[in-house]
């Protein structure tokens, strides 16, 4: 699903150049549930952003579902993001003046799907995350866990090939975190490829493969025995 070769990325900070990714090789198959770990500054978020086409690599190749991601125009990048990827952010990034259903429907709007189907789909995915009753509430009326579940529903709504989650539990307490992981596990069980960036070992243990980053390089890449989150919920 994702093939990354010799990926480099550096940022310019004033006169200094910060080499964040120093040659990453990563191969993720369909249906995998991968966590990218590392201390802050290890380059894990940068890697995720490049995978998510939110950021561009300086060097190296990146192929997503057989499509080389290279020299994309802004328009093309937007199209691919919409078609291939679903995003889950640490700070949820819901649009505050849209209710839950409208937030979930937004990626569908950019796919040019008709209003009626958007409505149906958004309700379907809200139900999937257990928030059907909250469809018409604004984000400000939801708890942190509920917000993240709306965000997951939104990420799922466009039926992406890969889900990308950047510290999805970073703003949540432990119980809520496990609830969210439980959701992600059940989505993965259905065959969806998921990539999670986290610095919490217990969260990483709930995935199937852990990629450890340090100083812009892969330190360790191992398959792990998945800890099911449902036992804590």
């Amino acid at each position: 699903m994702i093939q990354i070769n010799e990926l480099h990325k550096s940022y310019r900070m004033g006169s200094n150049e910060l080499h964040v990714l120093k040659g990453i090789d990563l191969d993720i198959k369909e249906g995998e549930f991968v966590s990218i770990m590392g201390s802050s500054g290890s380059g894990k978020s940068t890697l995720l952003n490049i995978i998510g086409m939110l950021d561009l690599a300086d060097k190296g190749s990146y192929v997503l579902d057989g499509v080389p991601i290279k020299n994309l125009s802004e328009k093309k990048a937007a199209l691919y993001r919409n078609k291939f990827l679903g995003f889950i952010f640490q700070s949820f990034n819901l649009i505050n003046y849209k209710n839950a259903a409208e937030n979930v429907a937004l990626p569908l709007y950019y796919q040019g799907i008709s209003r009626k189907i958007r409505k149906e789909k958004s309700l379907y995915y809200l139900e999937k995350v257990g928030l059907a009753d909250w469809a018409h509430h604004l984000p400000s009326e939801l708890s942190g866990g509920q917000k993240q579940r709306v965000a997951i529903a939104r990420a799922l709504a466009s039926e992406p090939k890969v889900l990308l989650a950047d510290e999805p539990t970073g703003a949540l307490d432990t119980t809520t975190s496990y609830e969210v992981m439980d959701f992600l596990q059940s989505i993965n069980d259905e065959g969806k490829t998921i990539l999670v960036v986290t610095h919490e070992p217990d969260i990483a243990d709930m995935t199937k493969r852990i990629v450890m980053l340090k100083d812009g390089k892969i330190l360790e890449d191992k398959k792990v025995e998945q800890v099911r989150a449902s036992q804590y919920v």
């Binding site: 998510g52 328009k75 937007a78 993001r81 990034n93 819901l94 649009i95 990626p107 950019y110 466009s158």
Partner: peptide, 13 residues
């Protein structure tokens, strides 16, 4: 920020 979210969800410039 809102425009950033929209772009992440597939809005073209």
């Amino acid at each position: 920020k809102e425009l950033g979210i929209r772009k992440a969800l597939g809005a073209t410039p």
